[in-house]
């Protein structure tokens, strides 16, 4: 079943065409990777899906309903959560309060008898941040802040999770751990994941399918293997066709 449908999405910033006629779908239960060089338009696409920016053209559908024109909080309540590449924790709150806030406002529709604190701690435990629960969010390391982004998104009880470079800047050991975490939360929360990642091998490891953006245009879509063998991708990514 199609969960997310991107139809003819275009975005202009003044004269710059950040996205142009992008079309694809993400199906229920899939992990789909989004790949592309810096400035390809990946984050912009996430911002459009999450309602932070209006597209110049096209529409986004989620479970058949039009999301374009809705506010971010409404899109959150529809079941889409996102993380930010440049992390944005709630300042002046502890790590636990950050997640509690997400549960309180985004996840309230998931009735639960558990106290808020326990629900938050469960999620923090899953991302490996439970020991830092009472820390001010600003005191976390980069890896901690990336985990907090994931935890907070999970707190809203999403069906579709948009992850924007949650592994960028992490050490190889941290990346390996994050991969395990993502697999575990995906199974546990029955998620569909749409993930932006810079490192091709990491993305291939995790994804059922990969979509490649180049200067705002979708140039390829397929399984990790198909993408690795795709001529256009090799040209833009590896600087030449090495056949």
């Amino acid at each position: 079943m199609t969960l997310l449908q991107i139809e003819k999405i275009g975005k202009s910033f003044g004269g710059l065409r950040a996205l142009n006629d992008v079309n694809f779908a993400v199906n229920n239960g899939e992990t789909v990777g989004l790949m592309g060089a810096n400035g390809a338009g990946k984050t912009t696409l996430f911002s459009i899906i999450a309602g932070h920016q209006p597209p110049t053209d096209g529409i986004v559908r989620f479970k058949g309903d039009q999301m374009t024109g809705k506010r971010p909080d409404q899109i959150c309540h529809a079941g889409i959560a996102r993380t930010f590449q440049i992390v944005r924790p709630f300042a002046r709150m502890t790590v636990r309060e950050n997640v509690e806030t997400a549960i309180l406002f985004g996840g309230a529709r998931h009735a639960s008898n558990q106290p808020l604190e326990i629900r938050a701690k469960d999620i923090l435990d899953q991302v490996g941040l439970v020991d830092q629960s009472e820390m001010p969010s600003g005191a976390l390391t980069l890896s901690g802040r990336k985990k907090l982004e994931v935890a907070r998104a999970l707190g809203t009880g999403p069906e579709l999770l948009l992850l924007d470079e949650v592994m960028a800047g992490l050490t190889p050991a941290e990346v390996a751990k994050m991969l395990d975490t993502l697999r575990a939360i995906k199974a546990d929360h029955k998620l569909t994941i749409f993930i932006i990642e810079h490192v091709v091998s990491t993305l291939s490891d995790l994804s059922d399918r990969i979509i490649v953006l180049h200067h705002g245009v979708k140039i390829a879509e397929g399984t990790p293997r198909e993408i690795a063998e795709n001529k256009d991708v090799r040209t833009v990514y590896f600087g030449g066709d090495d056949t």
Partner: peptide
């Protein structure tokens, strides 16, 4: 209150606040 928590979240980061479902 929950409302107050929402106001504090707006201070913490307004964009994140709307992302977690707060009608900012």
């Amino acid at each position: 209150s929950t409302f107050g928590r929402g106001l504090v979240a707006i201070q913490g980061d307004e964009t994140s606040a709307e992302t977690v479902g707060i009608p900012v």
